[in-house]
Amino acid sequence: MAAHPAPSARARLRVLLPRLVLSPSLALVAFFVYGFIAFTTYLSFSDSKMLPSYGWVGFQNYETLFSLRMWDIAVTNLAIFGILYIVICSFLGLMLAILLDQHIRAEGFIRTVYLYPMALSFIVTGVAWKWFLDPGIGLEAVMHDWGWTSFEFRWIKDRDMAIYTIVIAAVWQTSGFVMATFLAGLRGIDSEMLKAARVDGAGTFAVYRRIVIPQLRPAFLSAFVVLAHMAIKSYDLVVALTNGGPGNATAVPSTFMYSYTFTRNQMGIGAASAEIMLLTIAAVIIPYLWSELKEDKR
């Protein structure tokens, strides 16, 4: 019989090296994502005020959180903002994508124009829209200057309407991205099938409604996931546009968390609010990741 040598160092390295290379990143993620989530979770059950403290208080922070009027405002605002943002972006994005898909001359240029806001910082977007919507110098002042003196548009100063200005700016920034997602989806549809539909006698409208849009499901899904998680995470835009004001009128969970943790020295409550944000996002993302990755498993 042939000799059976022990695996050489090189053979062992071949198996080990890939895992070795992956491990620093895994360690970073394990510690700074999952470890930190665990730590924050613990803090949300602790009596932390200005600094982390480890006295266990059970669900007290959550109870306080849910009784706070500002949290109530923040959640309501997020609901209004999130729903409008997702619906308007999807609608606008789909409409623009379909319009752009009609063999438009200068399509490349138009696409570039629609999408560039996505390259900007939310702070820049916030500054631009903040002053454009400012009644003193922006749209309202311009209209007055142009002679329409009865024109009034002061949502950004209005407690009830300010949240909608955030929708306006956010839609401006992201709808181009949704358009691009849908456009890519449209371009992925088999053109022979569309020809077949035309031969079957379907008009443009019917082709889109019956054949094209139903096939954009994956694009809808990924647009939804991206928009939903951006809505929940949105912080910069609110800070730059209204800074949560007037008063607390445009507070959202992200600004709530920041102000309770770092300015009001209620770290336990801040941690609890971060926890709620995480759970909300997880509810959207985990099923999505699961369905995307499960065919890949081996």
Binding site: A2, A3, H4, P5, A6, P7, S8, R10, A11, R14
Partner: peptide, 17 residues
């Protein structure tokens, strides 16, 4: 089982070798 090439068991030998 075992694979051997020219009298040497190569089960744990990397492809290059």
């Amino acid at each position: 089982g075992e694979v051997s090439i020219d009298g040497r068991v190569v089960n744990d030998v990397p492809p290059a070798d």
